[in-house]
Simulated scan of single mutants.
Amino acid sequence: MIALHRAIFDAVVEAIRRPEFDASLPPLSDATWARLLANSALMERERLEFLGDALMYATIGTILYKQIPSGSPHLYTNVRGVLHSNAVFTKVAEKLDILAVPDVVLRALSKMDFGEGASAASNKSKPEVKATADLFETVLGAYYLEKGFGPLCEWVQGIYKPLIAVAERAFREW
């Protein structure tokens, strides 16, 4: 099973690295950034991270079900397991340049709880990968609260549709 996940992961990472894989972050309002940056917002950031993680799990599952109508639960479980991982969230976030938020935002977030060194370095430590994935999930949770589930799903589908296709191919070829 580990070899299968590795094959899917490698295919997905290769797809993310391609120049044609391009998108932008979901936009957050200044008011949302201000709430996230408040000194008292640690609990709220953690709650949004939890929410973003849960939303990605559900959204990826829904997209898989629709995009691969003949898929088996085994395929869905393996593909979702890779696509809903901190490693993939981090790779997507780096490609989307999630850290290209205004400098004041990045400095504040880095000092608060996402860790110094949360840069787009290719050899991140496990805590740095987790910190970047957490930031990605937090932004998605905040976007959901701002815009709703429909716009979040549309954004995720735009990003993940080609990754799902690559992951399905890797699963079937394995």
Rank of each mutant, 00 (worst) to 15 (best):
R107D: 12
W33R: 11
G71F: 03
L42A: 08
D103F: 05
W33D: 07
V101K: 11
G117Y: 06
A121N: 10
A100C: 08
S125H: 03
K111C: 05
D97E: 14
A93N: 06
F114R: 09
V139C: 03
Y65H: 12
P127S: 09
G117F: 02
G71L: 06
E94V: 14
V105N: 02
I98L: 15
E116L: 15
K66G: 00
V79Y: 00
R45K: 07
T132M: 15
A41T: 03
P127L: 08
S70L: 09
V104L: 14
V92T: 05
W33K: 11
V129E: 02
L135W: 00
P69H: 00
D113M: 13
A131K: 03
I98N: 09
A87K: 13
F89W: 05
P102N: 14
K126A: 14
L36V: 01
A41N: 02
A87R: 12
G52A: 03
L99M: 14
A34F: 09
H84K: 12
K111H: 07
N78D: 13
V79R: 02
K91V: 02
L106I: 13
L55V: 05
N39M: 10
A34S: 11
T32N: 08
K91S: 05
F89C: 10
A41H: 04
R35T: 06
P127D: 08
L37S: 04
N86M: 12
M56E: 09
N86V: 07
W33I: 14
L83N: 04
D134Q: 06
A34T: 13
I60H: 06
V79H: 01
L36F: 00
T138N: 01
A54C: 07
L51G: 00
L55R: 12
I68R: 04
L135Y: 02
F114I: 15
L42E: 11
K126E: 11
D134T: 04
R80Q: 11
T62H: 11
D97Y: 13
M112N: 08
Y57I: 06
K124M: 04
P69M: 03
V79G: 05
T132I: 15
L42M: 13
D97R: 14
H74K: 10
V129F: 01
S40L: 13
N39Y: 12
Y76M: 09
T90E: 15
A108Q: 15
E46R: 07
P73H: 05
F136A: 02
S72K: 07
G71S: 07
V105K: 04
E49I: 15
P102S: 13
K130D: 08
A118D: 10
L51E: 13
P73I: 13
G61Y: 04
L51Q: 13
E49A: 08
P127G: 09
S40E: 15
H84Q: 14
S72W: 04
V105Q: 01
P102L: 15
M43V: 10
G61V: 03
S119H: 06
L64P: 04
L109F: 11
L109S: 08
